[in-house]
Design a protein around this nucleic acid. Structure first.
Lengths: 251, 251
DNA sequence: ACCTTTATAGTCACTCTGACTATAAAAAAC
DNA sequence: GTTTTTTATAGTCAGAGTGACTATAAAGGT
């Protein structure tokens, strides 16, 4: 920042700085986002992303973890273990009708099961499928759109998908994550081959295979590996069809 | 944001919100970043990224464009044409010793030539090679590190590299961008083959080939294509060696 | 003229990928 | 209890993509 010639704290109206959280999970083969119902104006009664003000001695990431713990009833420790990633900052002057609010949006991915139960803010927290969301407060619909696109892209070249899975999971469950987030069907043997060929993506668990509700042959269990990036990347099939038609090639 | 239970503008010390700009260019096969010398404390005399406060009725992106135009002497129009991308927001409570400053960092890529000349803030603006930067003010060294990593990654799967090139460029120049940003040497025929096979990455210009300072065979000229994403991606060679050794494969 | 330099064309083996077939092991249907 | 269905896993094959490399073309330098 170059405040040298412009620094005058009174020359500017105060900015409020908040965090917003786009927390996603996969349930019943559908992507869900965590929403809360607003109790006050503006947008009283509307659904909104969880979030809140950054405290004076707190960075945005800490604020996001704190809000997430508060509003989902998660313990501070399990919130600390979550995959939380800064998405981007929304600063449109009109995005909050009351005052100038700049919001740093974060994305978190959680395994399917945990129901948001909660003390305090979590009273009205609820998972909603991202298809057919209601009207959302502020620019939160935009934030969700951006977050979804970010997740879609990151599944291609990172190991992020395991963040949607419980500590132990089958390759079928991992494939469901990809299929749900990308909205495509993938060939099972090919998916398996690529995942297992990506070093550090998943590691086999030596325990017994699971079967529980499953109708077919029991699947082997895996846990998330240590790698963060995926090489080679797992490209989504759609994009391949953006290929230029034959004969149009340059030179 | 969930201000419903917490909204009290006086409960929080005011936050200042700024933008910081990490503007890169490739000169003489080295990546350079645009820095300005600070005239005032804190960090008087130190080098810093250009940037400044967001105005009351301005979003962060507009502020970034305005500051960039002011501090590089670019016209507002050419600044509007630049590739400007939000990097991330830095909100550490101690990052500015004077007060709580949250800064939204942006990355911009410009073609090699334009020397920052400037009215106003630009008086002390200068391109500095990213290898061996001096001590920087605030957390700006961190911002530059993050920005470089972002650019390195985006060259793989987007057409971003053309933003470093003038309107017309040779494939050799484009390759230099990759080699400079990635810090690797690439095989020229293979690079050529991959770029031309990526639909919409570059388009041939029908004019005469250039030769100017060149010592060898004149190269054909290209301009940036219309595509934003690169399929298939141009993976940097380093990462391939992260491959897991033979025999360690799961299952 | 020759050498050097850069651009461009092409080759070849290897890998990766998508599409597909086959087999195994469980639950559900009969 | 046998058959059918379902899911997991193994394997095959052709085509695309890639790295390493060779060859030729067209300029400037000596």
């Amino acid at each position: 920042m170059n405040e040298e010639t412009k620094y005058d704290p009174h020359a500017f109206e105060p900015f409020a700085v908040t965090v917003d959280l786009a927390v996603f999970t996969v349930r019943e083969s559908r992507l869900h986002v965590l929403l809360i119902r607003r109790g006050q104006d503006p947008y009283a009664g509307a659904w909104a992303l969880p979030g809140g003000f950054i405290l004076p001695r707190e960075c945005a990431g800490d604020a996001a973890r704190r809000e997430l713990a508060e509003e989902t009833g998660l313990s501070q420790e399990s919130a600390a273990a979550l995959h939380l990633e800064q998405l981007r900052t929304y600063s449109d002057p009109g995005r909050d009708p009351r005052m100038r609010v700049v919001s740093v949006a974060y994305t978190a991915l959680v395994p399917g099961l945990p129901e948001p139960r909660g003390g305090g803010d979590a009273a009205h927290a609820q998972w909603m499928p991202v298809g057919g969301l209601p009207e959302l407060a502020f620019d939160h619909a935009r934030i969700i759109t951006d977050a979804r696109e970010r997740i879609r892209a990151k599944l291609e070249y990172t190991c992020l998908a395991t963040a949607f899975c419980p500590p132990q999971f089958t390759l079928g469950e991992l494939q469901q994550v990809y299929e749900t987030v990308w909205g495509v069907e993938l060939d099972r043997p090919n998916f398996r081959r690529k995942v297992l060929a990506s070093p550090g993506f998943v590691e086999p668990v030596e325990g017994a295979p699971r079967r529980t509700g499953g109708r077919g042959k029991p699947a082997a269990l895996y846990r998330a590996g240590t790698a963060a990036a995926l090489h080679p990347p797992l490209l989504r099939p759609e994009r391949r069809s953006e290929r230029r038609p034959e004969g149009e090639r340059s030179v």
